[in-house]
Design a binder for these strands. Structure first.
Lengths: 138, 138
DNA sequence: GTGTTTGCAAAGTGTTTGCAATTTA
DNA sequence: TAAATTGCAAACACTTTGCAAACAC
């Protein structure tokens, strides 16, 4: 029942990704990983940081999100051609996307059963299977 | 084996969508629907039109793509947070997305078997189920 | 000290918008 | 001729970049 993610764990995550644990990265990592399964855009994360009086530029938020994604700490979810969403849950799962509110919600992997998947075209390899269920008002 | 889409059919499509069959819309509709299952961006369609000496502004291409989508003649496919793709095949099917070449390929509906789908959150309705298989080099 | 990271402002990219001129019915 | 549509250029939203100052080791 230990859901707390101690400071050192964030630190280790950054270290093992080869990223220096700077003040900004530590603070953003805390916001992203202290609670699981966050779906967040750069603007949202920047606003959250500001709300907690963490001084970070928007440019650094963008850089950090990409660095974390490259390091496998985040997963980018493409649901909206206007903005990029990042998911702090990198395990296999899928998403609901509410087109009215622009909100993402997780669908646990076991809730979707893809019985048959075509193989990738010749010379290609499947990198990821994304299932996005778009929902809206009745 | 009649795969030709006569002029009048394009005309009727526009008419029944409540869209006046202007020169631009007719020409773009021809490009979009004369061959099935096209995956195209606004810039791509604009370039094609220019290549065929059809004079249309990029703004009109954007407007037209959205009008056609609203009319159910096109389907927007969100795979890339940088640009919008439109699919001239509006029947149920899914997609491969090649992240190296930024190209989409159809996956016929019967090639994917989604045996179990969670129901939409309360008060919500499933609008669409998108399966995107991201592929890349081996 | 040396190389990395940050913040700023400027530039970039894809898309939308306001409005006068044109076209359609 | 009334209403819809077009094209242009300007505006927009989101994202990236160049570079000097600040920071981590």
């Amino acid at each position: 029942m230990d859901t707390v993610r101690p400071f050192s764990q964030v630190l280790d995550r950054l270290r093992s990704a080869g990223l220096r644990p700077t003040r900004q990265r530590m603070a953003l990592a805390k916001l992203l990983f202290d609670e699981g399964g966050r779906h967040i855009t750069a603007e949202m994360l920047h606003a959250e940081a500001q709300a907690e009086s963490i001084r970070v530029s928007l440019a650094t938020v963008y850089n950090t999100l990409h660095q974390f994604t490259q390091a496998g700490l985040l997963r980018e979810i493409v649901v909206d051609s206007q903005r990029s969403y990042f998911d702090s849950n990198t395990t296999r799962h899928h998403h609901f996307f509410n087109e009215q509110t622009n909100e993402l919600a997780d669908i646990p992997d076991e809730m979707i059963d893809i019985a048959k998947v075509p193989s990738a075209p010749a010379g290609m390899k499947i990198k990821q299977v994304d299932v996005i269920i778009r929902v809206g008002n009745l």
